[in-house]
């Protein structure tokens, strides 16, 4: 069902979170990002209800609908961390450069810092807090522990969400493929070889997302 606050995405989001953001933002904000988008943007702007000031928003996070009061400029990342107290999702750069804020939106990995909360109402948002079933860890969480896929733990939620998506996308079939498709998630402690090992182990165990 279409929410009146949420314009229809300009196109099906691609797997690359950044590109899909730009298309959606182009639609929502009518930014003149690229000439072919303008007419589409105008069309969508005309269709959209103007949202201003603090309004009620509903986000479906980890299977639960949460309501909050926020302005339309609030990013999904800040909505999660500052409004819903879901601080598992991390802010490393706030510019889509480090991947620490990666969450799944309708199963696809996106940088939540480049996503406005208002855009993802009525979508399924999964954060690191939603990976485990109660106290039973997701196989990738356990593999990260077993392979020591982290040190400080700050990039870890983003690595895990990207890793889960990477497995589902079919990009975890070789070590090199994992290295490539996990390169949007920076780890300054340098746990990369262990992250590769963890994702590959889950892949080889036959786990299917």
């Amino acid at each position: 069902m279409m929410d009146s606050n949420t314009p229809e995405p300009a196109a099906q989001p691609e797997q690359d979170g950044r590109r899909s953001f730009i298309k959606q933002a182009g639609g929502l904000l009518g930014l003149a990002l690229a000439p072919p988008l303008i007419s589409q943007a105008e069309r969508l702007t005309a269709m959209s209800k103007k949202v201003e000031g603090v309004t009620e928003m509903r986000l479906k996070v980890n299977g639960t609908v949460r309501t909050m009061q926020a302005e339309p400029r609030v990013t999904l990342l800040d909505a999660l961390r500052e409004r819903l107290d879901l601080t598992g999702t991390k802010k490393g750069c706030d510019h889509g450069q480090c991947g620490a804020c990666t969450v799944l939106v309708d199963g696809k990995r996106v940088n939540s810092c480049l996503t406005l909360a208002v855009m993802v109402q009525n979508k399924e948002i999964t954060t690191v807090e939603g990976l485990a079933k109660g106290e039973e860890l997701h196989p990738l969480q356990q593999a990260f522990i077993d392979h020591d896929g982290f040190q400080c733990g700050y990039c870890t939620p983003g690595q895990l969400m990207s890793g889960v998506a990477c497995l589902k996308e079919g990009h975890a079939k070789t070590d090199d493929s994992v290295r490539e498709w996990m390169s949007g998630n920076l780890c300054r402690c340098g746990a990369y070889p262990n992250i590769v090992a963890a994702i590959r182990q889950v892949e080889q165990s036959g786990f299917k997302g």
């Binding site: 107290d85 879901l86 733990g153």
Partner: peptide
């Protein structure tokens, strides 16, 4: 041995300095 704080880190429960919201 695995890290004793590993579970908290992979579950998003480990609280860093800017996460004391309450």
């Amino acid at each position: 041995l695995n890290r004793v704080d590993g579970r908290d880190k992979v579950m998003g429960r480990a609280k860093y300095a800017a996460e004391y919201n309450n």
